[in-house]
Simulated scan of single mutants.
Amino acid sequence: MDSKRTALTTLLGVALLAVFADPALAQGYDSTTEQLIRSLNTQLLYMAIPITVLVEGILIYTVWKYRKNDDPQPTKENRRLEISWTIATALVLLVVGYASYGVMANDYVTNTQDGNNIETNGDAVVVDVTAKKYLWEFDYPEQNVSTTGTLVLPKGQNVYLNITSTDWLHAFHVPELGLKQDAVPGQSHVIKTKITSTGTYQLYCAEYCGVGHSKMLGEVEVKSQQGYQNWLQQQSSSSGGSSNNNSSSNSSSLSSSGLAH
């Protein structure tokens, strides 16, 4: 009877964990960075579920079996058991470390390039991202295009974001794309990614940066290759980007007036 209850409890635990895990696993990936991070989380989750069920099952079984024991005795020494769980723990840590290193060392997750000398290794888009109170500026040095507030990128192409700040600490954060990087004055930090879906994604400042922090928002607009090229041509043909610069000035004015209120 006790074994049946233990098995039932274990099955219920697995089902409960699966209910919580399933929505996260069912979502698609919008960038290579997000795919790598979520895949690692999924692997670790698959490892954690059986360990959690095993430990909780033993705990529940022990509590139930000895619930009427009024004279509990200390556990006797069992070297074989101690060696077994030490080896098992070491193996788990090795697997976790190996899986984590494989993701964290990937260029799409951790890029250690110098922002002043980015090696793209082929066709790629390079954008200088500058954070300031309280807005985002995006410069495309190879196309001589600048925007404020909206970062436009192509789908299916490597992207290098060279992130810095002009005043104090900010943080570039696009949760849906798995992107996050501090913007530090006097330093350049590079993010490499490849976006796999078109659409518009919310950009946040993830580091408290003053009274206008909550308004320091932006958007990442991902277009098809053709749509991106059309956008670049449109920006370049607008009197050398003058209309774009005017929109940037207007955005700055609106941001300042919003803070004044």
Rank of each mutant, 00 (worst) to 15 (best):
T62Q: 06
T62A: 08
T62D: 08
V63D: 04
V63G: 02
W64F: 05
W64K: 02
W64D: 14
W64Q: 08
W64I: 13
W64Y: 03
K65H: 05
K65D: 12
Y66R: 00
Y66S: 04
R67M: 06
R67Q: 06
K68D: 14
K68N: 09
K68E: 13
K68S: 12
K68W: 03
K68G: 07
K68H: 03
N69P: 11
N69C: 14
N69I: 11
N69Y: 06
N69M: 12
D70T: 07
D70L: 12
D70H: 03
D71K: 02
D71I: 10
D71E: 07
D71S: 10
D71L: 10
D71R: 01
D71P: 02
P72A: 08
P72E: 08
Q73K: 03
Q73M: 09
Q73R: 02
Q73E: 10
P74I: 14
T75E: 03
T75R: 00
T75C: 02
K76Y: 03
K76C: 10
K76H: 08
E77L: 11
E77Y: 04
E77C: 07
N78H: 06
R79H: 05
R79N: 09
R79F: 09
R80K: 09
R80N: 13
L81C: 06
L81A: 14
E82V: 15
E82I: 15
E82C: 12
I83C: 09
I83W: 06
I83T: 10
I83E: 07
I83P: 04
I83R: 02
I83V: 12
S84K: 02
S84P: 01
S84W: 01
W85A: 03
W85V: 14
W85R: 00
W85T: 13
W85L: 09
A88V: 12
A88D: 06
A88W: 00
A88P: 05
A88C: 08
T89K: 00
T89H: 01
A90P: 06
A90T: 10
A90L: 11
L91K: 00
L91P: 11
V92M: 07
V92L: 11
L93E: 04
L93G: 09
L93Q: 06
L93H: 04
L93T: 07
L93C: 14
L94Q: 02
L94F: 03
L94P: 01
V95A: 14
V95G: 11
V95E: 11
V95P: 08
V96Y: 01
V96N: 04
V96D: 05
V96H: 01
G97A: 11
G97C: 11
G97E: 12
G97M: 13
Y98L: 15
Y98D: 15
A99M: 04
A99D: 14
A99Q: 07
A99W: 00
A99H: 02
A99F: 03
S100D: 05
S100F: 02
Y101D: 14
Y101W: 10
Y101A: 15
Y101F: 11
G102H: 02
G102M: 07
G102A: 12
G102R: 01
G102D: 13
G102W: 01
V103M: 04
V103T: 07
V103K: 00
V103H: 01
M104N: 07
M104H: 02
A105Q: 07
A105N: 06
A105C: 06
N106I: 11
D107F: 03
Y108R: 05
Y108I: 11
Y108C: 13
Y108V: 14
Y108A: 15
Y108D: 15
V109Q: 01
T110L: 09
T110S: 14
T110V: 12
T110Q: 09
